[in-house]
């Protein structure tokens, strides 16, 4: 069956990412959707090392590396500079991890979106600081093991719920907000293209599994991504022109299906899994209501 995925490759082979890296697929699909008239800005993150050591580059578009907190401001400056030069048709993309987005970069992100620059901000969400070796971020979900939320005697796995930056962006009134998954590349590319139609700030959060950080087999990245959507742990939605659309899963899949293939959740007890199921159910109801409004 032919797919709608563009054939053009703007990401070359030979990158330095781990096998099964979701963040690599996220970049590849985003660039396929945007084409070559694109400038990418990355903060400190896995994507700052994935291209490999100087002078290697893995993208066929310019790539600006910045300090951790700078993505929002970086894309603002690139956008304004290009516009002054009359290059308004170039896409300017911030491509940051969840630490660089939900935590240290949130202020710059929120401000860039508020100022209304014509930019894309892609959050590749691998749910922890993976480049520094799996430390909790604001985007790490309840129940997850990380090196700073170790299990130990006191079972100090992450006790706080995931901060969903896409929800914050919607609350802030960003003109285009979506969540996407590397297991649904056609949907991901469609969303990036929809976003492109809007002149203004665009925010897309892409769940990007991390085999060494989530302790799942590297060949299971797509499976894990798909289960995240099917179990409603990571609902896919699109918010555009004031309208909210939620992708409805066909059948009920318990969260356990998603959790059990990842080592980061291996320590969870039955009541804790039930708690996660309750969180997921509650959030799903909230999103359904949001769609109804």
């Amino acid at each position: 069956m032919p797919t709608s995925i563009p054939k053009q490759e703007l990401m070359m082979s030979g990158h330095a990412a781990c096998a099964g890296c979701g963040a690599v697929l996220a970049m590849r699909y985003v660039l396929k959707a945007l084409g070559e008239k694109t400038v990418v800005s990355v903060p400190a993150s896995c994507w700052a090392v994935i291209p490999g050591n100087y002078p290697a580059e893995v993208l066929k578009v310019p790539m600006v590396y910045t300090p951790f907190a700078a993505t929002g401001a970086s894309i603002s400056g690139i956008r304004e500079g290009l516009d002054i030069e009359g290059k308004e048709d170039y896409n300017v993309v911030g491509f940051a991890g969840d630490g660089g987005t939900a935590d240290i970069g949130l202020q710059a992100l929120s401000a860039a979106m508020e100022r209304g620059h014509n930019v894309f901000y892609i959050m590749y969400d691998n749910e922890a600081y993976m480049n520094t070796g799996i430390q909790r971020s604001g985007s790490t979900p309840f129940g997850a093991w990380t090196t700073t939320t170790p299990i130990g005697k006191d079972r100090t796995f992450k006790k706080e719920k995931k901060k969903v930056v896409a929800d914050i962006m919607m609350a802030q009134g960003v003109p285009y907000v979506a969540t996407a998954s590397v297991a649904f590349p056609e949907d991901l590319i469609r969303k990036v293209k929809n976003a492109k139609e809007i002149k203004g700030p665009k925010f897309i959060q892409i769940l990007s599994p991390c085999p060494p950080g989530w302790y799942h087999n590297s060949e299971d990245t797509i499976k894990v991504s798909r289960l995240a959507v099917e179990t409603r742990v990571f609902p896919l939605y699109e918010y555009m022109n004031g309208k909210f659309n939620l992708y409805k899963t066909n059948k009920f899949v318990p969260v356990e299906e998603y959790l059990k293939i990842q080592g980061r959740f291996a320590h969870l007890k039955e009541d804790e899994i039930k708690e996660i199921q309750n969180f997921v159910n509650e959030r799903w109801e909230i999103l359904l209501k949001k769609e109804g409004n």
Binding site: S41, A73, S76, G77, I84, Q107, A108
Partner: peptide, 21 residues
Amino acid sequence: IEVESEHSAMASTMTSEMTGI
């Protein structure tokens, strides 16, 4: 542009300069 911090002021000044402005 009035940004939300000096960190962002210098970051955006930097990247604008990078475009040749």
